[in-house]
């Protein structure tokens, strides 16, 4: 590994319906300059609109478009039904799988795999154990500072991946807060998340955008945009940059980071492009830029 950094499109975290997912990935296959695409449902099996057969069809289309494709998996499998679907996926999926829980690591024993950002990797020894056990690449959790990322990347050059775009995934729960916000339970959710392709906005009582509810997951309201840190990340040995899909023109988002990696534009220009592409969203350097600005005042949100 090492050499040219990979641009990775992470899994869609929101409850997009089947047609939308297909259209999205077909467009990515044909138009997006991304190296790796992660498919799969990470948050909730109840919303899975895609069968394995459909994912395979999407994979084929992406591979024809020159992309490497891997399957991501549930971040918090707790119920028997969820474990069964995870076991089936690990049995049936013919390609590389990304683990987001120790359950998946157990099921993938002896097979090369990816480790996603939902597994806690905070220091070198944990990273080393995961690589030794067959991880091809490990995506670090978003909570790490740039200093920590540097140390980890140096200890395993080319094998570390870091999120550079999209909402920061901050928490998981057994409870569906999307359902709860409508007075429902997870068991009787009636697909409460279906109408929020970019998540459900949560504001502070004084009206600042703060968090985003996505089923059992909580994310930041702001989008991470770490183009200003990319040079340092790559210099320290980070091998892949992850872009998380949001409800914006993702082909154009990918193009901006591709241009940055190719040296055609600088981070200022990336930030300007992304500000245009993500109207009404605050962009933040996240933990990589020191402390994230968690609930920007309306004035700051404009700038």
């Amino acid at each position: 590994m090492g050499g040219t950094p990979l641009l990775v499109l992470g899994p869609v975290l929101y409850g997009w319906p089947l047609r939308r997912l297909r259209d999205f990935y077909f467009k990515i296959a044909d138009e997006a300059a991304v190296d790796v695409v992660l498919l799969g449902e990470v948050i909730c099996t109840k919303r899975t609109s895609c069968s394995t057969a459909t994912w395979l069809e999407i994979r084929e289309r992406l591979e024809r478009g020159g992309k490497t494709v891997a399957m991501s998996t549930l971040a918090l499998p707790t119920e028997r039904r969820e474990l069964e679907s995870l076991r089936a996926l690990c049995r049936e999926w013919p390609g590389l799988i990304e683990a987001n829980d120790y359950a998946t690591l157990h099921l993938l024993a002896g097979r090369p795999h990816l480790v996603g950002a939902f597994i806690n990797v905070y220091h070198e020894a944990t990273l080393a154990v995961l690589l030794e056990e067959g991880a091809v690449r490990v995506c670090l959790p978003p909570e790490l500072s740039l200093d920590s990322v540097r140390l980890l990347a140096r200890s395993a050059p080319g094998r570390v991946e870091v999120q550079v775009f999209g909402r920061l995934p901050l928490a998981l729960s057994a409870r569906c807060h999307h359902a709860r916000s409508l007075g429902r339970t997870r068991a009787r959710c009636r697909f409460a998340c279906r109408d929020d392709p970019d998540g459900l906005a949560l504001f502070t009582l004084d009206g600042r955008p703060f968090l985003t509810i996505n089923g059992i997951q909580t994310l930041s309201a702001s989008y991470l945009e770490a183009s200003f840190q990319v040079t340092e990340l790559l210099a320290s040995g980070v091998g892949a940059l992850r872009i998380l899909p949001q409800d914006v023109d993702m082909v154009a988002v990918v193009a901006a980071y591709r241009a940055l990696l190719d040296g055609r534009i600088g981070p200022e220009e990336v930030r300007a492009i992304l500000t245009r592409l993500c109207p009404g969203r605050t962009l933040t350097g996240g933990y990589l830029a020191g402390r994230p600005d968690p609930a920007p005042a309306p004035a700051a949100a404009k700038g």
């Binding site: 959790p141 978003p142 909570e143 901050l170 928490a171 729960s173 057994a174 909580t218 994230p292």
Partner: peptide
């Protein structure tokens, strides 16, 4: 904790300090 323990970064998102860190 209503969030899955060890899978929650809400505190560090606001304060820079969290249970995991």
């Amino acid at each position: 904790c209503v969030m899955a323990e060890g899978r929650c970064m809400l505190s560090s998102y606001v304060t820079g300090r969290s249970p995991n860190l």
